[in-house]
């Protein structure tokens, strides 16, 4: 049996200076009403997120701790790589336009770094969807020998030994000793708040205005040829598909996770929001421009696992591609790349 309710309330109020914000923010929607700039407000024209509401609602201190962790280069084996090294705000939190990303000691990764925005809507993460929960995403780059190359125990130790974390940790979790789940939850809170819904395309979705004639033509072509997989409004259906890049994919892709040979060469459909900022394209970064990436769909390579919707290719004229590129550029979100809340 728990203590009496009155006693609980007194204890809570006594603890309010330390815990109040955390408790409020983690469980209660009242934060928005208190004018909290760190509240997670899903855009009205988006579907329901899979993360970030209810018990997972970000708190201001959790967000701030997550931001500090995100930009901390000490959390890598040689002190050179932070999350932000390969997920740069100026590129919609993708890498600095490199095919593959550089980890500790100059080691090159194996797939193109995906952008980090609207993460709360993803049912699974990474090109192969191997990670099933936003809070567990950071474990992969922290521990991968080609990326940050630490154990999670080492990450925890580094944070607990760094006095500059102490006050944030205390405020966010009411403890002096952080544990790994605190780190993962804080980073998830930081990522949850990186919402991209401020483009002209979003204005079009909300008001019917915002796109010029060429972009409207591009949107029309997009609905006709692309939105089957790059579903509106997030511009991905988050499924796994083989888009005919190779007749035999070197990278097993989704099959690495599912163990199903028919998933070989299938990758998670990426959102095309902010795609003008996130080049190069595809899981291996093989296409440098949007024009090249779109032109690929005229004649995808024949392969047993090719998505049926692409078996005949997509007939696109040069003018069609120009219009599609114009439309994709209309999804560039200037507020995403200038918002100081998540700036290093």
């Amino acid at each position: 049996m728990g203590p009496q309710p009155q006693l609980m309330l007194i204890r809570m109020l006594r603890a309010l200076p330390i815990f109040g914000w955390v408790m409020l923010a983690s469980c209660s929607p009242d934060t928005e009403e208190l004018g909290n700039p760190y509240a997670f407000n899903p855009p009205e024209h988006f579907p329901s997120p899979v993360y970030g509401l209810g018990d997972q609602r970000p708190s201001p201190m959790g967000f701030k701790l997550g931001k500090k962790l995100f930009y901390d280069r000490q959390l890598s084996s040689d002190g050179t790589v932070s999350c932000g090294s390969c997920h740069a705000q100026v590129h919609a939190f993708a890498d600095h336009n490199t095919k593959l990303s550089m980890g500790v000691e100059g080691r090159l990764g194996i797939r193109n770094a995906p952008p980090v925005f609207n993460m709360a809507w993803h049912p699974a993460f990474m090109w192969d969807g191997g990670i099933n929960h936003l809070e567990l995403v950071p474990v992969a780059p922290f521990t991968h020998p080609l990326e940050m190359n630490l154990t999670m125990a080492q990450v925890v130790q580094k944070v607990n030994q760094d006095s500059s974390y102490r006050s944030l940790v205390q405020q966010a979790f009411g403890t002096s000793q952080l544990q790994d789940h605190h780190i993962l939850i804080s980073l998830a809170q930081f990522m949850t708040l990186i919402v991209s819904a401020g483009s002209r395309y979003d204005m079009h979705l909300s008001t019917g205005k915002g796109l010029n004639a060429l972009e409207m033509e591009g949107l029309s072509l997009f609905k006709q040829h692309c939105s089957h997989c790059h579903s509106e409004p997030l511009l991905s259906d988050f499924s796994y598909r083989n888009n005919g890049l190779d007749s035999l994919s070197e990278d097993e892709g989704r099959a690495l996770i599912s163990l199903n040979p028919s998933d070989r060469g299938k990758f998670k459909v990426p959102s095309l929001r902010n795609a003008a900022l996130t080049y190069p394209y595809m899981h291996d970064g093989r296409f440098m421009t949007l024009e090249q990436a779109i032109a690929h769909y005229r004649s995808p390579k024949a392969t047993p696992n090719l998505d049926p919707s692409l078996s005949a290719g997509i007939p696109l004229s040069d003018q069609d591609i120009e219009a599609l590129v114009a439309f994709i550029k209309s999804t560039t979100d200037e507020t995403l790349i200038s918002d100081t809340r998540w700036m290093e």
């Binding site: 990474m126 990670i131 929960h133 809070e135 992969a140 922290f142 154990t151 999670m152 790994d180 993962l184």
Partner: peptide, 23 residues
Amino acid sequence: RNVSGAQEGALAVSNNMFWSWNT
């Protein structure tokens, strides 16, 4: 517990009983 995100105690990922790339 395999689909519910970061856990603590015996289930903390720092116990190295966890696949980072295939949750």
